[in-house]
Amino acid sequence: MANRGVNKVILLGRLGADPDIRYLPNNGGKVVAVRLATSEVWKDAKNVKQERTEWHRVVFFKKLADTAGEYLKKGGQIYVEGTLRTQQWDKNGEKRYRTEVVAHELQMLDRASDTSGTHGTHQSSSASSVPDTADMDEDFDDIPFF
């Protein structure tokens, strides 16, 4: 195993927005992207509570894309296992990069309220607690899907 690397990511967090559903141009396959917030809480030297939120772009393909597109909603808490992938593209002659998590496993821990009530959704009082989206990267539209 010394010659092999490991590329594995495990995240547990809340969705900052509803899924972004798109289709690949060549084969029409579905791609679903979500913004997932994970938070870290600690006390500083003065014993004051500090919190930092990290935003992750998670993409789903094939059957997971179908599930994610249908059932995931803003505020829902999910557990994801996957791998890191960095994309590179040019925009107006400038190289752009984005690292994302390609999901291989998804578990929905709870979901935001479903207004139709058809999915038997249950929600704890903290399920609607979505982190502030002020530092969330909104620039999804200029990223090509490969």
Rank of each mutant, 00 (worst) to 15 (best):
M1V: 08
M1Y: 12
M1W: 10
V6P: 03
N7M: 07
N7D: 07
K8R: 15
V9C: 08
V9M: 09
I10T: 15
L12H: 11
G13R: 11
G13P: 08
L15A: 06
L15G: 02
G16P: 04
A17N: 09
D18E: 05
P19N: 04
P19M: 04
P19K: 03
D20E: 13
I21K: 10
R22S: 01
Y23S: 01
Y23C: 01
L24K: 04
L24R: 07
P25K: 09
N26G: 05
G28E: 02
G28S: 01
G28T: 00
G29L: 03
V31K: 02
V32G: 00
V34I: 15
L36K: 10
L36M: 10
L36G: 05
A37Q: 06
T38N: 10
T38P: 08
S39Y: 03
S39V: 07
E40K: 13
E40I: 02
V41Q: 13
D44C: 02
K46R: 15
K46D: 14
N47T: 02
Q50I: 01
E51Y: 05
E51W: 03
R52L: 06
T53K: 03
T53R: 04
T53E: 05
V58P: 04
F60K: 01
K62P: 00
K63W: 04
L64N: 01
L64D: 00
D66N: 06
T67N: 09
T67D: 09
G69E: 00
G69P: 00
Y71R: 11
L72W: 04
G75F: 02
G76W: 11
Q77C: 14
I78F: 12
I78A: 12
Y79F: 15
V80K: 06
G82H: 01
G82S: 02
T83Y: 05
R85A: 11
T86G: 05
T86D: 07
T86L: 06
Q87K: 15
K91C: 03
N92R: 12
G93E: 04
G93S: 08
K95D: 04
K95V: 04
Y97H: 12
R98L: 13
V101K: 05
H104R: 14
H104F: 05
E105C: 07
E105G: 07
E105Y: 11
L106E: 04
Q107E: 14
M108W: 07
M108V: 15
L109I: 12
D110K: 07
R111D: 04
D114C: 07
T115H: 14
S116K: 15
S116G: 13
G117R: 10
G120L: 05
H122R: 15
Q123M: 14
S125T: 10
S125C: 07
V130M: 07
D132W: 08
T133Q: 13
T133Y: 03
A134R: 14
A134S: 15
D135Y: 12
D141V: 05
D142G: 10
F145N: 04
F146W: 13
